[in-house]
């Protein structure tokens, strides 16, 4: 199949890539660029493991054609850490034990980053809604929500309750 050159700025590095018209952004990221952080969990936009930022907005890379991304800036999980130093969000995932099998983690981080970029101090309700497009089967989300909440408001400490707003619903 014929290829078409597109320009992508991936994690601040601009590159021109020959892509096929039916290549997804996820295939380009994983197979052409060898950035394996973005995962294919379902290939149909349900699980969120492939979430990347396209010009700052979270998209399902498995449902986005590479051609649609021409000229855009793409942020993948590989773009979060500064060399060996984890971003505060990543560090918060470590501090709160939010990583279990880790397959959903990159997509979860990207969705969380998108939320915090737009709304630096979301309440936990917003936060849970913003992450509800990313499926996790291991953690029950509790520690992921804690990690993102803490990254947003480090001074708030860790709530006792492991998902809903601290203080719970019926104390």
């Amino acid at each position: 199949m014929q290829t078409i050159d597109i320009t992508l700025t991936v994690n601040d590095q601009q590159q021109t890539l020959p892509v096929k018209s039916n290549d997804t952004l996820l295939e380009v990221i994983r197979d052409y660029l060898d950035l394996t952080g973005s995962k294919e969990g379902c290939g149909e936009g349900v699980c969120g493991s492939c979430t990347v930022l396209l010009d700052g907005h979270p998209v399902r890379a498995c449902l986005t054609l590479a051609l649609e991304a021409d000229g855009c800036a793409v942020t993948t999980v590989e773009g979060l850490a500064d060399e060996d130093t984890l971003s505060p969000l990543q560090q918060s995932f470590i501090d709160h034990g939010a990583v279990q099998c880790g397959f959903c983690t990159p997509g979860m981080l990207i969705s969380a980053k998108a939320l915090l970029d737009e709304n630096p101090s979301p309440d936990r309700q917003k936060l849970r809604q913003a992450l509800s497009g990313n499926i996790c089967r291991c953690t029950g989300y509790a520690k992921i929500v804690d990690a993102v909440a803490h990254a947003a408001r480090p001074e708030s400490g860790c709530p006792d309750c492991h998902t809903k707003d601290s203080g719970g619903d019926h104390d």
């Binding site: 849970r128 992450l131 509800s132 497009g133 989300y141 309750c161 492991h162 998902t163 809903k164």
Partner: peptide
């Protein structure tokens, strides 16, 4: 399967 929005507060 449950999403973050379906989860109860777990103690």
């Amino acid at each position: 399967i449950p999403t973050a929005a379906d989860m109860p507060c777990v103690i």
